[in-house]
């Protein structure tokens, strides 16, 4: 009794022969005899016929093969191979390279041990850098780009200072030792929680709470621990899922949608995420991670909605993403300056 493999081979052979134009009467008779000889022959033939027929749907591949786009890509492929060009060429390659250096040193942070006060530790990140700092009590500080934080652990306080930039704090619970983040504009006090503080300037900051609750204590409030705790009872609280703008006092507290919260915190994963944000805001945010100045001359572009996300530090890709997401082209106009223009206007 023939095995399945040889039955299939015979069936395939018949099928291909019968699909030709010049099938003889003798062959047709021979085929009918073969097919009638066993149910397995018939099954194999019909099964393979379905596979054969399925490939009729693949005839569109012939159209793909001669598409304009493929013709263009093939021409590029041949040209590249001929010239031996390796890697992507871009008007921004020079800029990207200069920033890549920044990115490369980004992992090594500047740790300054303040010798006059051995308990105060200082951490700073340059533009484009990020750093995670593990604190002795198990709390964690994640420092974003161009930021500066100091901390001092005393017997009964955990005293953090955010001097510049933005940081995410994941606070180990310790009711006896409040975790305070001192900023030029005031103090944020937490017991066990996760939140970010971002300094917009010397007197204004954004506070975003991912877990738990924090309270804001104005700068002129008393400094002693008991007094802080007492003051915090009365102070404005910001709870999980809320964001607050603080300027001397809490200016506004808004509820933030979980998705928006995730986007606001996406820098911790080394990613910037946007969802329909105006281009001007996106540029401002991207600008925090690079020393390149990004300009928009065409004011009508400022409100262009931008969605998508890209990796921090991959500046070349950031511009590429803006090109793709917003149909814009980045033109280099100086050593550290790029202008965004509409794709069609870009001079190539």
């Amino acid at each position: 009794m023939p095995d399945q493999k040889s039955i299939d081979a015979e069936a395939a052979d018949w099928l291909v022969r019968l699909e030709e134009d010049n099938v003889s009467a003798a062959d047709r008779v021979a085929f009918l005899a073969w097919r009638g000889a066993s149910a397995r022959n018939r099954e194999a033939f019909e099964r393979l016929l379905k596979v054969w027929g399925a490939f009729d749907e693949a005839k569109v591949l012939a159209d793909y093969a001669v598409s304009d786009e493929n013709t263009e890509l093939l021409a590029k492929d041949a040209a590249r191979a001929r010239l031996g060009i390796i890697g992507r060429r871009s008007v921004l390659t020079g800029i990207a390279a200069s920033v890549a250096v920044l990115g490369a040193v980004g992992l090594s942070i500047v740790i300054k041990n303040n010798l006059s006060n051995p308990h105060r530790n200082s951490f700073e990140t340059a533009i484009g850098e990020q750093q995670t700092i593990d604190l002795p009590d198990g709390s964690v500080i994640e420092l974003n780009t161009n930021s500066h934080v100091e901390y001092a652990y005393l017997n009964n306080t955990r005293d953090i200072r955010l001097l510049r930039g933005e940081a995410y704090f994941e606070v180990a619970s310790d009711k006896e030792r409040p975790f305070t983040v001192q900023t030029p504009g005031g103090r944020v006090v937490a017991v066990g929680t996760a939140f970010t503080v971002r300094l917009n300037n010397d007197s204004e900051m954004d506070v975003l709470v991912a877990e738990g609750k924090v309270v804001f204590v104005p700068e002129d409030a008393p400094a002693a621990r008991q007094e802080i705790m007492a003051a915090s009872q009365a102070a404005t609280a910001v709870s999980a899922g809320q964001t607050a703008i603080i300027k001397k006092d809490v200016e506004s507290v808004d509820i933030i949608e979980p998705e928006a919260l995730a986007r606001k915190l996406s820098w911790r994963q080394g990613v910037l995420a946007f969802s329909g944000d105006p281009l001007a805001d996106v540029i401002a945010d991207v600008g925090r991670y690079t020393d390149i100045v990004i300009e928009i001359d065409d004011q009508t572009l400022r409100d262009l909605p931008v969605s998508g996300y890209f990796k921090i530090g991959e500046v070349d890709e950031m511009f590429e993403a803006l090109e793709i997401m917003a149909g814009l082209q980045a033109e280099r106009v100086g050593a550290k300056k790029v202008r965004l223009v509409r794709m069609a206007e870009a001079g190539e």
Binding site: V23, R28, L32, E46, G53
Partner: peptide, 17 residues
């Protein structure tokens, strides 16, 4: 997509084997 019957009833067109 054809089915097996197409081959069974296809006439006996000549042509060299």
């Amino acid at each position: 997509n054809g089915d097996g019957a197409v081959y069974a009833i296809a006439g006996c067109g000549g042509g060299a084997s």
